[in-house]
Amino acid sequence: MNRMAQPNLWPVLHTVDTASAYKAGLSIRDVSLTYGTSRGPLRALDNLSLDVKPGEFVAVLGPSGCGKSTLLKLVSGLLSATEGEIHLKGRPVKSPRSDVGIVFQQATLLPWKTVLNNVLVPVRAMGLPVKNYRDKALDLLKLVGLEAFANHYPSELSGGMQQRVAVARGLIHDPALLLMDEPFAALDAMTREHMMIELQRIWASTHKSVLFITHSIQEAVFLADRVLIMGGRPGRVVDELVVPLERPRTVETMARKDFNDLLGHLRHVFGEKSTC
């Protein structure tokens, strides 16, 4: 795979354009969520607003307990906001909807299904004709570099490979938005760096909007066009960083001074603003 041969694939999206996010991307406006618990109401998210434009890669960065996963459940329609509005492609998100793809921290593949059938799970769950999507599933497996493993079972794959299957599964139904909930957190450091580069390549060739939730500053800066910094209890966006690094970013990028300056800046922001 010659990544350098396709530089025109890399979108440049550094300015926030709220109007286009509202029409075609994801728009979250003043969303709050309060859980009822045995100790009384718990405010998990407080007046949270963010946008993801079409094709944009946005990382939500924050330590555990910030309500990051709650945010993901709201966007996927698994939870309903107490206040505020979420729109995807201009339509309100109130219940589960089919135009988001989800990748979890664990690959959570079905161990009794082959890799190919695992990729087809969302299609099956939506009640769409599975056989119409077989070729697409094989294309996606090719995209994630696993075409040779289509008929293997998940237990025969390494953790990184399983997570790549999960990415292919998240893309099978051609969602407008890919939600990723700390997808590399369970992988070892070497595999994680490799997966970051792989994900960048996959994202660039699919032009999907990505909302990437992570607690790794390095992952956020390396992958995202914009990094939103969350503070906790209740969760809200406390700061934003537009990442000016050109794409494709490579292993060399991680060694560069400007990359490390961004990491340093974010660490500083966390020291001051995040209270999780």
Partner: peptide, 16 residues
């Protein structure tokens, strides 16, 4: 997560 995945895709109770 698997139950969430099926729920998010709008799967029926029987299919889940």
């Amino acid at each position: 997560e698997l139950l969430d995945l099926y729920k998010a895709a709008g799967a029926s109770r029987w299919l889940t």
